[in-house]
């Protein structure tokens, strides 16, 4: 059955008491390295899931503003996950855009049985693994981190800190080494260790996202850490 997309409401004021638009914007500006520091994106924030369910219901009804809030809230985390997985900034942006568009198209299918972030990262994980297979078939396997990633980080550090040139160079080189080591992992190992040790998600959340039993998640993280520890022992001395 063909399904017509509802027209976006032209006059759909959002309930500020539920969505706190101003807070969203200010938290976005303060987006930081970990979920808990990225405004409302933490899955462990008890106030977040309800708000996000409301937002998704509005997205399903065609509310572009609600979609905008969700994108702004999660853009950095989704992009970072995609970039870690594919190791290519342009590919990661394209992929992250697709993730949010999938969310947009399927907002009505969210049943609230898991946290919104879990649902979103499940989409991201599935699309990322598909993209990696697609790229591999084209002979473009994920590999070294592209220079842009390190340059982007370098520019940010320049803004944020008064680090001297040697320190910035060391950080950039370390970032490249970390990404290269991550890219050498098998995709399924890469996904779980990125979610755990870079996105700081719990084992239970990762189990929900990957659909793997908890024991399998733990064993994959164990093996991924073992491999990374060998490759990065010199880097993290």
């Amino acid at each position: 059955m063909l399904r017509a997309m509802p027209e976006p409401p032209t006059n759909a004021p959002m309930a500020r008491s539920a969505l706190t638009v101003a807070d969203e914007r200010s938290s976005e500006r303060a987006a930081g390295p970990r979920p808990a520091e990225r405004g409302g994106a933490s899955t462990r924030d008890p106030a977040t899931p309800m708000d996000e369910k409301v937002l998704l219901e509005r997205v399903a009804a065609g509310d572009q503003r609600a979609f905008q809030l969700l994108v702004e809230r999660y853009q950095h985390r989704v992009f970072a996950f995609c970039a870690r997985m594919v190791g290519d900034r342009a590919e990661a942006e394209d992929l992250a855009q697709d993730v949010f568009l999938t969310l947009y198209r399927n907002a009505g299918e969210f049943r609230g049985e898991s946290a919104f972030s879990t649902w979103l990262f499940r989409i991201a994980k599935n699309q990322t693994l598909n993209r990696i297979k697609y790229l591999e078939r084209r002979g473009r396997a994920a590999g070294r981190v592209p220079p842009e990633l390190a340059e982007d980080r370098l520019a940010r550090l320049t803004d944020e800190d008064a680090l001297d040139a040697d320190e910035r160079l060391a950080q950039s080189q370390r970032a490249e080494a970390v990404q290269a080591a991550i890219s050498e992992l098998a995709e399924d190992h890469r996904a779980v260790v990125v979610l755990r040790d870079m996105e700081d998600m719990s084992y239970e959340e990762i189990s929900d996202i990957t659909g793997l039993p908890l024991g399998t998640v733990k064993s994959r993280i164990h093996r991924a850490r073992s491999a990374l520890a060998k490759r990065l022992a010199r880097i993290f001395q």
Binding site: A31, G32, P33, R34, Q75, H76, V78, F79, A80, A83, R84, R89, E93, A96, L149, D152, R153, R156, L157, Q171, A175, V178, V193, D197, M198, D200, R225, L228, A229, L232, A233, I235, F236, Q237
Partner: peptide, 16 residues
Amino acid sequence: SRLVQGLLREPPLMAP
């Protein structure tokens, strides 16, 4: 231990 702490301290990648 150093690996896990190092990964957690890695500067975040931000969307463009």
